[in-house]
Computed example of a mutant assay.
Amino acid sequence: MIFEELALPGLFRVAPEPHADERGFFARTHCEETFTARGLVGRFAQSSVSFNHRRGTVRGMHFSRAPHAETKLVRCTAGAIHDAVIDLRPDSPTYRRTAAVRLSAANRHALYIPAGLAHGFQTLSDDAEILYMIDLPFVASAADGVRWDDPAFALTWPEPVSVISDRDRAFPDWVGR
């Protein structure tokens, strides 16, 4: 696996290193030993999938409050997405900064998202499916979010928003929280 640290500390794009032959290829997409040797969370307690019918769908920006803050490994298994994160760690040198990457079934990349970052995505294709590996069991009472268009972060989305949940639209402005 190839690890590329992105603009926020601890945020990594993880690309497989395929071993190809006449049948196709084989590649590791996760290895607990490799992740932990890099100082990353390597063990994940649950996996979840998000399926989205329509191109332009936005989900996010979601996070869980401490002590239930989650580390995630996110991969697009069908279609393509614009995956975005916001650094919400008050002690981080990149507090309130954002980063985004394109994840797709074609590029097979994953995004390693450490605890303390809000996460969301916009689908760039119909029928996009996203696989999440999450280090902690979900605790509903700790779930929170940042509005997808909060001016405090100036996130840009590549397409017009076609679908978004009422919950995601209703998160309050970050400033003053």
Rank of each mutant, 00 (worst) to 15 (best):
F35A: 02
H19W: 05
A66D: 15
V161E: 02
G145R: 07
A140W: 02
W148F: 03
R169W: 03
R13H: 07
A115F: 13
A66T: 10
W157G: 10
R38V: 06
V58G: 09
L11W: 05
E159F: 04
S141L: 04
D168P: 09
H68Q: 14
N107E: 10
A78L: 13
Q46T: 08
Y132D: 00
T57E: 01
T29D: 01
Y112H: 10
V146M: 07
R177V: 05
M133S: 09
A154R: 12
L124F: 12
P67N: 05
I86K: 14
D149N: 14
L6W: 15
A154E: 12
T94P: 12
M133W: 05
R55F: 04
A105H: 15
D168A: 07
A143W: 08
R28W: 12
E33H: 13
P114N: 12
L73F: 10
H82L: 00
A78R: 04
P93G: 09
A69Y: 07
D150P: 08
D91I: 03
A106W: 03
A152H: 10
L124I: 11
K72H: 12
S64Y: 12
T71C: 12
P16C: 05
G120W: 01
A20F: 03
M61T: 08
P90A: 13
S48P: 03
A110V: 04
S50P: 02
R55P: 04
I164D: 04
P137C: 00
F3P: 06
L40N: 13
A154L: 04
D135A: 12
A37Q: 02
C76H: 04
L111T: 11
L136Q: 14
P172N: 06
L155N: 05
D21W: 09
R43K: 14
L136E: 13
F153S: 04
P16K: 00
N107V: 12
G60S: 04
I113E: 07
V161Q: 02
W174N: 05
D166G: 08
A7V: 01
P90R: 14
V85H: 13
